[in-house]
Design a protein around this nucleic acid. Sequence first.
DNA 1: GTCTATATCTCGATAGAC
DNA 2: GTCTATCGAGATATAGAC
Lengths: 202, 202
Amino acid sequence: MSASERKRAAITEAAIGEFVERGYAGASVDAIAARARVSKPTVYSHFGNKERLFLTVIGGYLRDGYTDLGPLADRIAEAPDPRAALIDFLGSWVEVVLREDVMTLRRLVIGEIDRFPQLGQVWAQVNATNDEALVRAFAALHKKGALDVPRPRQAVRQLTAMTVDAAQLIRTFRPAYEFDEGELEELVSSGVDVFLTAYARG
Amino acid sequence: MSASERKRAAITEAAIGEFVERGYAGASVDAIAARARVSKPTVYSHFGNKERLFLTVIGGYLRDGYTDLGPLADRIAEAPDPRAALIDFLGSWVEVVLREDVMTLRRLVIGEIDRFPQLGQVWAQVNATNDEALVRAFAALHKKGALDVPRPRQAVRQLTAMTVDAAQLIRTFRPAYEFDEGELEELVSSGVDVFLTAYARG
DNA sequence: GTCTATATCTCGATAGAC
DNA sequence: GTCTATCGAGATATAGAC
């Protein structure tokens, strides 16, 4: 790796840190340069201006930081106990989206969406990947006759809305909210039960 | 109304406009004062500093802008067709939360939640009011024997998650997203049907 | 490509007159 | 209470040397 590439990587890392901690307007190019141990003109020569720096760095971070739960989802349809497998899968998903760095990044993107609408597209696109993994699982369960899910994509949105999104929504407005012992498990399993009851075969 | 009160009101309105359009860090007290046609020291004499201005003005706006759907909810339990009444109620709720000013304010609050955690509490509190109206309706339906909803508060969160929150989530990351003809109605009614199937008596 | 140094501007906040 | 005028700090961005 050339010295220039190293500096670019250092700037990227420093910029993510500053943007996440202070927001777009609150982060200064000065501070980013200092944190990356380069001079300010080096930042500008690599990224042009502050807006492009933000878009490049945060957009890349969104894509790279994505946690692919596809392999876990693909086991649901073949599991001996689909309910347990579903709860397990959604539990893992909830764990990921409640991570503090994920939540902070999420709030940053939402807050800057008017200035950077492209980031909303990236976010939606990244999230769709895990949705699709579940869609495949439900299509398989439908085919096997275990469930009656004629519109798997809609069903997936309903299930994740009651579980993953509901948990994330709480922390979106209350970052310090501490879930009680068993509260998250109860939230997930009750959502799964509503879902399975509604989409039961017969 | 005294001249001082008029100026305070003008500052409040101007501050909401600037904060909503530019975010906390992006809005300047200069611009707020100019928009309110007062001098900067007048702003400071009324609100102390920028942070208190933001908290006071946005907090008040959140509380005042709240749309009380309680009366509409109280009709659900007595309606001849509870399903239709529920769909009607949630459709009105969706309409409110998708309004552009509501969405923009929501993104602003989320983006600044680390700096102003109190606003998250206000938001949660305001939203709980509409939740409680639905809780009352389900408790009544449970008592009547029309539904089997032993935990109405949990059930309300599940229903709103699939309908109101799901619609709002889409627009949160994609402000310009246009719902197709009938897409919102389908989203709401399918959510209601999942809910009613899962919580049917028997 | 990368640096030092700086131009230019705007910010939040306040002193002092009225 | 409200104004004009201004302070000091810190912002983005760039010129010019190497």
